Amino acid sequence: MKPMCEKVIPSSNSSWRFVKYELPSIDFCWHYHPEYEICLTLNSKGLRYIGDHIEEYSEQELVCIGPHMPHTWHSGANEDESTQVVYVAQIPKVWLDSQVAEHPEMQGLQEMLIRSSRGVLYSSESTAQALCLFQQMESADPFSRYILLMNLLNVMIQDNQSKLLSSRFFTYDDKTDSGIDKLDRVIEFIYDNFDQALYADELAAIAHMSTNHFHRFFKKRTERTLTEFINQLRIGKACKLLINSNHPISVISDRCGFNNISNFNRHFLSIKGCTPSLFKKSLRLKHAQ
């Protein structure tokens, strides 16, 4: 199942979109868009899908999702038939990135926007503050709503308990940093060849570095070793195939670059906390409910 590309239209007299949904349940709608999205769910419980990350959610929670990251929430009706609420802010990447680039006061957002490429879950304290701000947005004029959005972003960047969700990694396109160009080339090569054997000396040559220097460079830039990054990418790709296809696990293992099924199972268990077969079984059970 391929994600659907959603067309986002900004709210009236605004550079971004604010919307409040009131629903009996949340339908599964696997989609993506080029905007940053801040989503707060309230009085709802079910499954949250962000990239290759699948997790149960309940009550209220705040999540930020970067551009082009496939995502959806899925819930059934509440037992008491009460309404589920979803607040959403969708912010064009070009607009927000330019705000950060042009205003020194907003430099603190830069790291958060990079992290959003993997999806970020925020603490209960931040969620409570965000709920208050979203509620104020409902009746606010466009300028006041803009101020409330800045307050919301400020709450999020100060949350030191936030958690990354998806294993997928996107590079930050800052052409003033020559190291980013090198990292882009290496990661593009890894993405294009993840199903084949990958060697550090080969990747170091692409970055025009010695192998030892490349290992240090890669760890500093991605906060993971090269091996960790490649294995997480391969497992992420495997999760997508497990979600979106009916291929046997042995076929998925081979397509994702693992040299044998036991090696695949070991890395999958280490990264996802369960075996591929249990992961696939849990998906069937959740969809059957």
Rank of each mutant, 00 (worst) to 15 (best):
M1V: 14
C5A: 05
E6T: 09
E6W: 09
E6F: 13
K7M: 05
I9F: 06
S15D: 07
F18H: 08
K20H: 06
P24S: 04
D27Y: 02
D27M: 03
H31L: 06
I38H: 01
C39K: 14
L40I: 05
L40M: 05
S44R: 07
K45F: 15
I50L: 01
Y57W: 12
E59H: 14
E61I: 08
I65V: 14
G66L: 00
P67M: 10
M69N: 03
M69K: 12
T72R: 04
T72V: 04
H74K: 06
A77P: 07
E81C: 11
S82A: 11
T83D: 06
V85H: 01
A89G: 09
K93A: 13
K93S: 10
V94I: 01
V94H: 04
D97P: 10
S98V: 11
S98W: 06
H103T: 15
P104N: 09
P104E: 14
E105C: 13
G108M: 03
G108N: 11
L109Y: 09
Q110A: 13
E111S: 11
M112F: 15
M112K: 01
V120D: 02
L121V: 04
Y122A: 03
S126N: 12
A128S: 13
Q129F: 12
Q129E: 15
A130E: 01
C132G: 13
L133P: 00
F134S: 05
E138P: 02
A140P: 01
Y146G: 04
L149A: 04
M150G: 08
L152R: 03
M156Q: 10
D159G: 14
N160G: 03
Q161F: 13
L164R: 12
L164E: 07
L165V: 00
L165W: 02
S166T: 09
F169Q: 03
F170T: 02
Y172D: 15
S178F: 07
S178C: 02
S178D: 07
I180G: 00
I180Q: 08
K182G: 02
V186L: 00
E188H: 04
Y191E: 10
Y191L: 07
N193F: 03
N193C: 13
N193Q: 08
D195T: 08
Q196T: 09
Q196E: 10
A197E: 11
A197H: 10
L198F: 15
L198P: 13
Y199Q: 13
L203C: 15
A204Y: 01
A205W: 00
I206F: 10
A207R: 02
A207L: 05
H208S: 11
N212A: 05
F214R: 04
H215Q: 09
F218G: 10
F218D: 07
K219L: 11
R221K: 14
E223Q: 15
R224L: 06
T225W: 04
E228P: 09
I230H: 09
N231H: 10
Q232R: 15
R234D: 02
I235H: 09
K240P: 01
L241Y: 10
I243D: 15
S245D: 00
N246C: 11
I249S: 09
S253V: 13
N260S: 12
S262F: 14
N263I: 00
F264A: 02
F264Q: 08
S270H: 11
I271K: 06
K272T: 08
T275W: 00
K280Y: 00
K281T: 14
S282G: 01
R284P: 02
K286M: 11
A288H: 12
Q289V: 15
Q289R: 10
